[in-house]
Amino acid sequence: MKTDDFIAMLANEAPPVDRRAPGRRFALALLIGFAAATLLMAAGLGLRPDIATAIHLPMFWMRLGFAACIGAAALLLTLRLSRPGVRIGARWAGLAAPVAAGWAGMAVVLAQAPAGARLPLLLGHTWHVCAILIAVLSTPTFLAMLWAVRGMAPVRPRVTGAAVGMLAGATATVAYCLHCPEMSPAFWSTWYLLGMAIPAAVGALIGPRVFRW
């Protein structure tokens, strides 16, 4: 049998590729990760006592949107980085935009506050545990997304690992918002972002090993 005929025979006998499989794989990983992070938050930290009042405050939704927008941008980056030959281009701006908006809000708040109130606005009451708690809550989504991406074909493992970690951190932050009493943009645009950066750094560190072909 000629080589060309053999290749054609193999191609004809190959089962059709389910193009929806990657989307289902990612959706399952995100659903499991977010559900587990929310359950961990509720069991270990608890909902904030005034949650029924807090959800009527615009700032509650602004900080939730901050985390959700970062998560959406990180998800898009992760999806594209999971496929070889797919360009990222200007999509990095989607990750930078909510961060820049949060920092702009922080600048306005700190500029309007008296000098003696600026540090308390930045530190709040929970700065020493906030980032660590977010990093811990990110673990379920981080592990689930590592599983999802490992089944794909990433060719930039370090960057892909960082995107997975940022997505996990953002997902955990959304869950953490239901517990955290801090409402100042100076606080959450700093410490929430640091909490997301921790799993992103871990992902960048282990990406080459986890995503090795």
Score class of each variant (00 low, 15 high):
residue 62 M to P: 04
residue 18 D to T: 05
residue 138 S to F: 03
residue 36 A to I: 10
residue 1 M to S: 13
residue 136 V to Y: 07
residue 76 L to F: 13
residue 66 F to H: 09
residue 93 A to W: 15
residue 115 A to C: 11
residue 140 P to D: 11
residue 92 W to S: 11
residue 48 R to H: 13
residue 116 G to W: 13
residue 52 A to Q: 14
residue 135 A to Y: 02
residue 105 G to H: 04
residue 184 S to Y: 05
residue 28 L to G: 07
residue 19 R to F: 14
residue 211 F to C: 04
residue 98 P to L: 09
residue 153 A to M: 13
residue 85 G to K: 09
residue 182 E to I: 00
residue 85 G to D: 11
residue 4 D to G: 05
residue 13 E to G: 08
residue 32 I to K: 03
residue 120 P to V: 03
residue 136 V to I: 14
residue 9 M to L: 14
residue 202 V to H: 05
residue 99 V to R: 10
residue 73 A to D: 02
residue 198 I to C: 08
residue 47 L to P: 04
residue 121 L to G: 02
residue 102 G to R: 01
residue 192 Y to F: 10
residue 15 P to H: 11
residue 185 P to V: 03
residue 23 G to R: 14
residue 64 L to F: 15
residue 11 A to M: 14
residue 40 L to C: 06
residue 123 L to R: 04
residue 170 A to L: 00
residue 56 H to F: 14
residue 94 G to F: 08
residue 22 P to I: 01
residue 191 W to N: 05
residue 176 Y to T: 00
residue 174 V to E: 03
residue 92 W to D: 07
residue 84 P to C: 12
residue 199 P to E: 01
residue 78 T to M: 10
residue 213 W to F: 14
residue 16 P to V: 09
residue 4 D to F: 12
residue 76 L to A: 13
residue 170 A to P: 01
residue 4 D to N: 09
residue 98 P to E: 09
residue 138 S to C: 12
residue 107 A to S: 08
residue 182 E to K: 00
residue 73 A to V: 02
residue 46 G to W: 02
residue 142 F to K: 07
residue 162 A to P: 01
residue 48 R to D: 10
residue 160 T to D: 01
residue 95 L to V: 11
residue 182 E to M: 06
residue 37 A to W: 03
residue 30 L to R: 00
residue 67 A to F: 04
residue 118 R to G: 08
residue 113 A to G: 10
residue 6 F to L: 14
residue 34 F to N: 08
residue 39 L to Y: 11
residue 105 G to A: 11
residue 63 R to M: 08
residue 182 E to G: 02
residue 135 A to V: 02
residue 18 D to N: 11
residue 143 L to F: 13
residue 158 R to F: 09
residue 200 A to P: 00
residue 144 A to S: 08
residue 177 C to H: 03
residue 47 L to V: 04
residue 155 V to M: 13
